[in-house]
Amino acid sequence: MNYLAAGGGGEEGFHAPGIAEFWQPLVGNGAFALTRSMVVFAAVAIILTVVLLRVTKKLELVPSKGQFLVESGYSLVRNGLARDIIGADKFKPFLPLMFALFTVVLINNLMGIMPFINFPTFSRIGYAIVLTAIVYFTYHGVGIARLGLFGWLKSFCPPGLPAWVVPIVWIIEFLTYVVNRPLTMALRLFGNMFAGHLMIMVFVFGGEYLLFSTEGFLPVTGVLAYVFSLAIFLFEVIVQCLQAYVFVLLACVYIAGAVADEH
């Protein structure tokens, strides 16, 4: 990518990476283009399917490295999230979904640090919206199935409130459960992946420009920019793993509210 742009007087200057770098169509353009994020997401889905089928086809008492990694992730989701949050007697029907969400989000996030790929899929908001929609329809579907449509609508307002407060509380709770929760869930995942990847690009390409296209003391600042980009890179790895955990954590919390007896 060329981040040199013509400046005043015909001189070239640094053009900072922006939103356009996240589009990256490979074939075609517009709504029906085949983009880099689509290829990455499809490749991750295929690789995950093959790896999980292969690892779980023949489980061993002394696990291999692959089996150990899969079992560690599964144990984290099962025991550290689903069972503890949803409840020991209610979490099992939702465990496959929670594990699938965790692995999909985690591996796609880590694509942002993968050599020759360097693109976190969820830096495109459409993917975050789709996964959030799956969680959204799951916990609302469970609530409606348990309580019926009118019972579900009634559950947004706790009993025992004065009559004049009920409409206000119901509207606030309805907006929280139906609008705010999915909105913030999708934006949290997208925003962290987008901002982190953008910061890495700014410092890497900015450092490249300062190091090779400037004179005097400025090349030294280019080296510092590269060092700082490495620090951001390492921090981004932590954020990528944390966001996968937080996404599934929120999904478990919302489902736990839908299956709770007092809901």
Rank of each mutant, 00 (worst) to 15 (best):
W152I: 15
V246L: 12
Y127T: 06
I107T: 12
W152H: 12
F102A: 02
I255Q: 09
E71N: 13
G8V: 08
F233M: 03
I113L: 07
M199S: 04
I255E: 01
P219Q: 11
F156S: 07
S37R: 01
L81F: 02
A20P: 08
Y3A: 11
I117L: 07
G73V: 09
A31F: 03
R188G: 00
P162N: 07
E208C: 05
P120I: 11
T176Q: 13
L230C: 06
C157R: 12
I107R: 07
A260V: 09
V105H: 03
F235M: 15
V39M: 04
V77M: 05
A244Y: 04
V237S: 12
Q67A: 03
E21C: 04
V55Y: 04
Y139D: 13
P158S: 00
P159L: 10
M193P: 01
I47M: 09
L95S: 05
F116W: 10
A82T: 08
G73N: 11
F14K: 05
I134H: 12
G28E: 13
F150M: 15
V62C: 05
S155F: 03
I117P: 06
W170A: 04
V169R: 09
G141F: 06
L131R: 03
R181D: 02
I255M: 11
L187H: 06
F174E: 00
E236D: 08
V55G: 12
Q24R: 15
A225L: 10
E60N: 14
E208V: 01
V105Q: 01
F137M: 07
V239F: 02
F212E: 10
R146H: 13
A258W: 00
K65I: 02
G66M: 05
P120L: 14
V178K: 12
A244L: 08
M1N: 13
K58M: 13
G80D: 02
L210T: 00
R83V: 04
V202T: 00
G112V: 03
V130G: 06
M38P: 01
L106A: 01
L48N: 14
H197E: 02
A33E: 14
S75L: 11
V27L: 13
Y136S: 00
F203Q: 05
H15I: 13
L110M: 15
I125D: 01
F235Y: 15
G196R: 10
V70G: 05
S123R: 11
L211R: 11
L147Y: 08
I144F: 09
V166Q: 12
F205L: 09
A6E: 15
V77S: 01
F217M: 09
W170V: 10
V227D: 15
F247P: 04
V39Q: 00
I238W: 00
